[in-house]
């Protein structure tokens, strides 16, 4: 594969980096990233990956664009209200970079479809807003041996960790099971500043780019936390648990599980 003149210009700021170069750009163009959740986190992640020239993006989301989403979900615009989020996001990505092919799933990611969904991708971004989905994505990625970026945001706080198969802990090593439904508010009940999603979703895109190019060190073995009000980033060392039910020595979770979603997440 050789670059067109347009690609050399479009990706010049990537290629000019010693760590990326033409070879790294080709890896990005051949790269496949699945973004689960085309919301606050998924919006900047998808846009930066599309802009960088990640050639194949998958998007999964069951929701339609709502006016209250636009405060943070910058991949959607006012005229997209009412459209399925994956369709609105696909249109933005195609407008941003026609080099990118987009595959969409308009629907929920479930224990039934998650494994076949992630199978075709090199890296998965968890941009979901609820615990059942986060545990489902973690378990499926561990079982299928897929690297992924976990992130969560609420109010002025965010967190991030990267799982790479056989390196460091998985999300379940840190948090063995979801909290009871409604024990923790989702950002829809608790509020969040849009730029919070921008900060953390962009970090997820960065982890995907590094992984695809094979450069730098992924955020494995540390949970990065961000407190916007005190403007503090902390990197907390975390270790793999031998007793982890999914990535431990004697796993008891051998296939993905659907947990019950909190009642507020259920569609009326």
């Amino acid at each position: 594969m050789s670059f067109t003149d347009e690609q050399l210009e479009r990706y010049s700021r990537n290629i000019i980096l010693k760590e990326v170069g033409g070879k790294g750009q080709k890896k990005l163009l051949n790269g496949r990233v699945l973004i689960i959740g085309a919301g606050g986190l998924g919006a900047p992640a998808a846009m930066y990956l599309a802009a960088a020239g990640v050639g194949h993006l998958g998007l999964a989301d069951a929701d339609r664009v709502d006016l209250s989403n636009l405060q943070r979900q910058i991949i959607h615009t006012t005229s997209d209200v009412g459209l399925p989020k994956v369709e609105s996001a696909r249109l933005t990505i195609k407008a941003l970079n026609p080099d990118v092919t987009v595959q969409t799933l308009e629907g929920l990611v479930t224990a039934e479809n998650v494994s076949s969904l992630i199978k075709d991708y090199d890296f998965i971004i968890d941009g979901t807003d609820n615990f059942p989905a986060k545990f489902l994505i973690n378990d499926a990625c561990v079982i299928e041996g897929k690297p992924f970026s976990h992130a969560g945001i609420i109010r002025f706080q965010g967190q991030l960790i990267t799982y790479i198969p056989h390196q460091g802990p998985c999300y379940r090593c840190l948090f063995p099971a979801p909290p009871p439904p409604d024990a923790v508010p989702t950002c829809r009940q608790a509020g969040v500043i849009g730029a919070m999603a921008g900060v953390i979703g962009s970090l997820q895109a960065m982890e995907a780019v590094k992984y695809l190019c094979g450069i730098g060190k992924p955020l494995t073995g540390s949970l990065l936390t961000y407190d916007a009000l005190s403007m503090e980033f902390r990197k907390i060392k975390v270790t793999k648990r031998a007793t982890c039910p999914v990535c431990g020595d004697n796993p008891t979770i051998v296939q993905p599980i659907d947990y019950e979603a909190p009642s507020c997440d259920l569609k009326p």
């Binding site: 050399l8 210009e9 010049s12 290629i15 000019i16 170069g21 033409g22 070879k23």
Partner: peptide, 13 residues
């Protein structure tokens, strides 16, 4: 610039 250097880099690849 910067496509000048970019073209040289890609040729060196």
């Amino acid at each position: 610039c910067p496509v000048t250097f970019v073209k040289v880099k890609v040729a060196l690849d």
